[in-house]
């Protein structure tokens, strides 16, 4: 098989870091209007009330190739924005974000799935959007379906799937696109215990193959299991960076102390 060879090549080089963030800043403008409309634009003589949100503040972070880093922090601390910048969804306001290799985010439940199309047809769209060619997708189809345990339902439209089935399919696709950097954002919580265990085994497999993983979770047990290094984001700034146990300790202590 060709696939492991490619992987070996990627991990053998090891030279450039997988992700390098330098003085990264991201600001958003938030509006308090329920929705924007042309009518509103024409009728509003006063400037709109916009609020600046500094989602990422002066972030410096380097993730080496083959490294797994957990990102922890409260809701709204900028974790998802960070993953968004790495996946090139957001343009940084200032600073640099250098990514070496192909990034595959674990797509959220149903993102990019069309309800009326079958599981098989949806696999193609999601795998190609994550960077596979159609031919490569065809070659991996069986593996993807088998891993998701959906052999019997793969010809049924996605709208008939349960939440767990969608999650399994989403994880399975992302796990089989041979990305160099995997972004996992709190999506493993849905599956049953058995499938979760399977996902963790797959993540370990990734780690031994020398891929990089950025793992966002509120589940400290999961974080301990997956990553040796953790970073704690607080209001968009890096609060701590170090061994998982250390950072989790500081984080939990801060959570338990009323501010």
């Amino acid at each position: 098989m060709a696939a492991p060879e490619v992987l070996g090549g990627a991990s053998a080089q090891q030279a450039p870091p997988a992700i390098q963030l330098e003085q990264l800043n991201k600001e958003f403008l938030l509006s308090h209007q329920p929705y924007a409309s042309l009518k509103g634009l024409l009728l509003s003589f006063l400037p709109r009330r916009l609020e600046h949100l500094h989602a990422i503040k002066n972030l410096n972070l380097t993730v080496q190739a083959g490294e797994t880093v957990a990102v922890i922090g409260k809701n709204g601390s900028g974790k998802s924005t960070l993953l968004g910048i790495i996946a090139r969804v957001y343009k940084p306001t200032s600073g640099r974000c250098i990514v070496n290799g192909r990034v595959a985010p674990l797509l959220e439940l149903g993102a990019g799935f069309h309800p009326d199309l079958t599981g098989l047809e949806n696999i193609f769209f999601n795998a190609v959007i994550l960077g596979l060619s159609r031919k490569q997708t065809q070659e991996r189809l069986e593996q993807i379906v088998a891993f998701a345990e959906l052999e019997e339902y793969i010809d049924a439209p996605i709208r008939t799937y349960s939440v767990g089935m969608l999650m399994r399919l989403g994880f399975s696709i992302a796990a089989h696109v041979d990305a160099d950097i995997l972004l996992v954002d709190e999506v493993l919580a849905v599956g049953d215990a058995q499938f979760q265990a399977k996902c963790y085994r797959k993540i370990q497999e990734f780690q031994t193959m020398g891929r990089s993983i950025l793992f966002v979770s509120h589940d400290m047990e999961a974080v301990r299991k997956v990553a040796r290094r953790a970073v704690w984001l607080h209001q968009g700034a890096l609060q701590a960076d170090g061994s998982t146990d250390e950072v989790i300790g500081q984080y939990l202590q801060a959570m338990n102390t009323p501010a």
Partner: peptide, 11 residues
């Protein structure tokens, strides 16, 4: 329509 995907990955 594709916003959930647009918010997740670049293309």
């Amino acid at each position: 329509g594709y916003m959930p995907v647009i918010k997740k990955i670049y293309f």
